[in-house]
Design a protein around this nucleic acid. Structure first.
Lengths: 209, 209
DNA sequence: CGTTTCACTATGCGATCGTATTGTCAAATT
DNA sequence: AATTTGACAATACGATCGCATAGTGAAACG
């Protein structure tokens, strides 16, 4: 262990991040099976053998890419809990709107996360098992707890928090997921600022008309 | 053109249907790129070359499989319009419940349709274009018209029918789509009869609490 | 009954898949 | 300065991909 600036380790980390960034994108766009080591390497502007060198197997690359993605996100995710703390205030409705906006903004600004989620969550298998064990179990528990908290403040109707979490997630995420379809079929961009506002408005109106 | 029972044409149609049935399943499970002619042939218990013989190219097989799937469905789809006609009656809430149940039952009993929809609707490209032009454009128009009708009867809040269609579709479909995840993470089967009832109940409570 | 049609099979093409092996050359170590 | 390490590249492996071509044999035809 000589000293300070290890040019090798630095370069290693740089290319690893390049690869992981590309991997997250390709996995989200194409899904695990359709994504190839070669296409990921091309996306990163590197050689296929180099990807294999840094992340031995394709499954391992997928896992490390998912970890990389989750790390990126957890630093920005602290918006929801903070809102829960303030929820003793009066204007609960405005709080709910902010929560919805936070969810929908998160989904829009992280299409990779949405893509990987939808692809893996809908197919049983070892990858879903791994994803649940390492990330989603905790995320779902936190989400359910937040729903329960909102219920105790009278912000949401009674019922299984898990079901409500799914319903709200679906109502807010689905429009974004199928936005290519909506754009093609009706010419309307679901990811536009106006459409997001409209979606949140409608959902809020549904909740307390 | 000799007479009646053409054993050849009959057998041809049989194997074509076998292939299409298998193709729908595999395309829904894996998506277009990851699904292979070989795996589809295996699923159907036939030889790969036979699939290639009946449906020249993979894209063509996909299109015919989608047509095959839509034909299956349109015979069962007539439930929603009928409900709209009766919606001049009083118990509008019960009608809305039935509509929600119809949508959610449809999604549960046709996972292939849900799978193909989610996979293709989220990725721009020639397949989505084809899908919109040949099936979805009409479906979306009908869905939006139905939402507008429900709005005119005071069953749904005001706002863009397309947005509301997306929100409701997401709220009802998402829980089923990610049911493998929910099952794994919380041990709860979202596709069970109780869960479906609970989901509809909650969404109804959201609409008019 | 002889001939044609056609559902189906066998085989192989070039490309690409994930993976493994070996080589190269500059950076790090002694 | 000599040696070892390690990031990266070149190349090849068998398997499988979508697709094409040449058969085979029974059903349909005149």
């Amino acid at each position: 262990m000589t000293n300070s600036i290890n040019r090798r380790a630095q370069r290693r980390e740089e290319t690893r991040e390049k690869i992981l960034t590309a991997a997250v994108r390709v996995f989200a766009e194409l899904g695990f099976e359709a994504a190839s080591m070669g296409s990921i390497a091309n996306r990163a502007g590197l050689k296929k053998a180099l990807v294999q060198y840094h992340f031995e197997t394709k499954l391992n690359l997928w896992q490390e890419a998912v970890n990389f993605l989750w790390e990126e996100l957890h630093s920005l995710e602290n918006r929801l809990p903070r809102l829960a703390e303030v929820s003793t205030r009066d204007e609960e409705r405005e709080i709910l709107r902010q929560v919805f906006r936070a969810i929908i903004d998160f989904a829009r600004s992280h299409p990779d996360w949405v893509g990987i989620m939808f692809r893996e969550a809908s197919t049983p298998g070892p990858r879903l098992d791994w994803l649940v064990e390492n990330h989603l179990k905790k995320d779902i528990e936190e989400g359910s707890a937040f729903i329960a908290l909102a219920q105790s403040h009278g912000l949401l109707p009674q019922g299984s928090p898990l079901h409500i979490l799914n319903i709200i997630s679906g109502a807010l995420t689905y429009p974004l997921l199928v936005s290519p379809l909506t754009k093609r079929a009706a010419g309307i961009s679901m990811a536009s600022e106006e459409s997001l506002d409209a979606t949140v408005d409608i959902l809020l109106n549904m909740l307390k008309p």
